[in-house]
C-alpha cells in the first residue's frame, strides 16, 4: 500500500469511533502492535528527547525501502508512534520525504503533533524524514 492508502485506511478505522475515549483506547491498542526497536539499539543516539516522554527510533534500508522500529516509555506516545510507523515504514525514501501528516488531524489526534507539546513526536517525524533523505542519497 502507498502512504496515502494507509492514511486513508487509518482515517476509515478512526471514523468508527464517536468519542475521544474510544479513539484513545484504539490508539493505545495500536501501540501494542508497534514493531519494537531491538533493545540493543536503544542507545543514546537513537533517543529523541521530548521533555516528558522518550522516543527511540531505529531505521534500516531493506530492498530499497526504509524499515522503522521504535519505542516510547509513555503508552499514548507509543500509540501515536505506532500509527506513524504504520504509515511510514516499508516505504521508499522518496515517498517518505514527500509525505505529509495531515491525516493526524483527520483522525482527531492533532494536539499530539503540536510543536509545543513536549512529547518528542514532532522531532520524531523530522528524524523519520532525515533518515529517508540519507537513504535516498545512498540509493543514488
Amino acid at each position: 500500500m502507498t502512504i496515502k492508502e494507509i492514511q486513508e485506511e487509518l482515517i476509515d478505522e478512526f471514523s468508527m469511533f464517536d468519542d475521544w475515549m474510544e479513539r484513545y483506547e484504539y490508539m493505545i491498542d495500536l501501540g501494542k502492535s508497534l514493531p519494537l526497536i531491538n533493545p540493543k539499539e536503544k542507545t543514546e543516539d537513537k533517543l529523541i528527547k521530548g521533555c516528558q516522554s522518550k522516543v527511540w527510533l531505529h531505521s534500516e534500508l531493506k530492498n530499497d525501502k526504509v524499515v522503522f522500529t521504535a519505542d516510547s516509555d509513555a503508552i499514548i506516545t507509543k500509540g501515536i508512534i505506532a500509527i506513524l510507523i504504520r504509515v511510514f515504514s516499508n516505504q521508499p525514501p522518496e515517498a517518505i520525504i514527500n509525505a505529509d501528516t495531515d491525516f493526524i488531524d483527520a483522525i482527531g489526534l492533532k494536539e499530539h503533533l503540536s510543536p509545543t507539546r513536549a512529547n518528542g513526536l514532532v522531532s520524531m517525524i523530522k528524524q523519520l524524514k532525515l533518515y529517508a533523505v540519507a537513504y535516498q542519497a545512498q540509493l543514488k
Partner: peptide, 19 residues
C-alpha cells in the same frame, strides 16, 4: 507514565502538571 496520566486528565478538562 505521568505524561499519559496528564494527557487523559486534560481530555477530561482537568489541568495538572506532569513531568
Amino acid at each position: 507514565h505521568p505524561y499519559d496520566m496528564g494527557t487523559i486528565l486534560d481530555k477530561l478538562g482537568i489541568a495538572v502538571r506532569t513531568g
